[in-house]
């Protein structure tokens, strides 16, 4: 599973016209495979600081429209999100 995800991240970064960062690609792929759909668990699974995933989520949503932000926990800042149709299309091309 991990190998498949890594390959998808690599493909996504190579083919994405939006110049995704590695973490941004990781967020999309993790959402695509159902591994995580919130920033905190995604950060934990990827082993990076929550702040860095929060930033990527904001960029993916507001600049690339690849995910949709659904909710934010006030106390933890955790963002919940889902892939948009545009995000699904992008992932379908590389997986």
């Amino acid at each position: 599973m991990e190998d498949v995800m890594m390959k998808t991240v690599t493909n996504l970064m190579a083919k994405s016209p939006e110049h995704l960062s590695p973490i941004g690609a990781g967020v999309l792929v993790a959402a695509h495979f159902g591994v995580s759909s919130d920033s905190r668990s995604c950060a934990s699974k990827l082993g990076v600081a929550h702040a860095l995933v929060l930033r990527e989520c904001v960029m993916l949503a507001e600049e690339h429209q690849l995910i949709s932000l659904e909710n934010r926990e006030e106390r933890s800042q955790r963002l919940f999100y889902s892939l948009t149709a545009q995000g699904h299309d992008l992932l379908a091309k590389v997986h």
């Binding site: 991990e2 890594m6 991240v9 590695p22 990781g26 591994v35 699974k45 990827l46 082993g47 990076v48």
Partner: peptide, 12 residues
């Protein structure tokens, strides 16, 4: 879920 070690290394 354990961290995805390969991805973790790459992302770090």
């Amino acid at each position: 879920g354990k961290p995805l070690s390969g991805a973790k290394t790459m992302l770090k």
